[in-house]
Design a protein around this nucleic acid. Structure first.
Lengths: 155, 155
DNA sequence: AAATAATAGTTGTTTTTGTAACTAACAAGG
DNA sequence: CCTTGTTAGTTACAAAAACAACTATTATTT
């Protein structure tokens, strides 16, 4: 198993990104999985509703870039567990407005606290400047608008 | 859909890492998927054998942190397509040494070139200093030894 | 040298994901 | 108003991942 090639897999960005993502997800997963039996897409939906208050599945899909079938299934699970309530839009009866129930709010607040402390733990490995740069670069690579950018952003 | 909360999902590192990883994987996937009908774990195994020359499934599993069942199935596919050859270790007949066939080498060289140019494309979005820092931080988050670090590294 | 434990790798079963096709509601053009 | 097209969301089916249980071989203990 001696290295015979100059190509470094451990420098390849998609590989590094995947490994870093997997590693960090694994640790955080414990919180929403063990405490609430949630899947990744479920806490993502929960977080979006927690942050934005009320959205349709399409809103979430657009903002999080999660496919609509995943949203649909995540919402079904969350609604079944009474974390999310649904209400038809009266003007456009295809659309459904989603929001957290009190139980959903409670779970969100709990998980948000976990998230914040875990994020702080990760960030503490670097200087504040480095972390700011990291977030900016990741947003770039993820194709997410930088909220702090001077131009664009409002779409 | 008005923001009602101070928590920013788009700053949360595990979320950002996942989205960036997904985005970059998706783009690179086209190469090994369309040209060779490979799955993600298959090109990972192929790359490891390309870089290191000869390894057992266990070696790959340890280095790439891919579960052994995934390696097993990826190797089976690669062997079936004659990209990888297997040979029993005579001292320990449980273990199998894996290496690329000429066809496997050819595929590896082709995909390696794609990988290098795609990596360069991603890196070009930032300054060289930024990219170097990014790789270093991602390695840290992924739990990979930094080959350039002064201390440690050799285990 | 049995018996027990450990290791390399495989196989089987259950969950989750990915993709396509679907239903229901709306929108436009003739 | 009635075809044609579009959109929001769901459902069905195929592909892949996760996890547990398995075989075969080697190592360890008594």
């Amino acid at each position: 198993m001696t290295e015979k090639d100059d190509f470094s897999l451990q420098d390849f960005l998609p590989f590094l990104l995947n490994r870093a993502a997997e590693e960090s997800s694994l640790a955080f997963q414990a919180h929403y999985k063990n405490r609430y039996g949630m899947l990744r897409n479920e806490w993502r939906v929960l977080f979006h509703l927690g942050v934005f208050g009320q959205m349709t599945a399409k809103d979430i899909s657009a903002r999080a870039k999660i496919h609509k079938t995943k949203i649909s299934r995540a919402v079904a699970k969350l609604a079944e567990r009474r974390f999310v309530s649904r209400s038809r839009d009266e003007k456009d009866r295809r659309a459904e407005h989603l929001r957290l129930t009190p139980a959903g709010e409670a779970a969100y607040r709990d998980l948000r606290a976990q998230a914040q402390s875990y994020d702080a733990e990760l960030a503490a490995r670097f200087t504040p400047q480095e972390v700011a740069l990291l977030r900016r670069m990741l947003r770039q690579l993820a194709g997410i608008d930088d909220p702090r950018a001077e131009t664009g952003g409002q779409g």
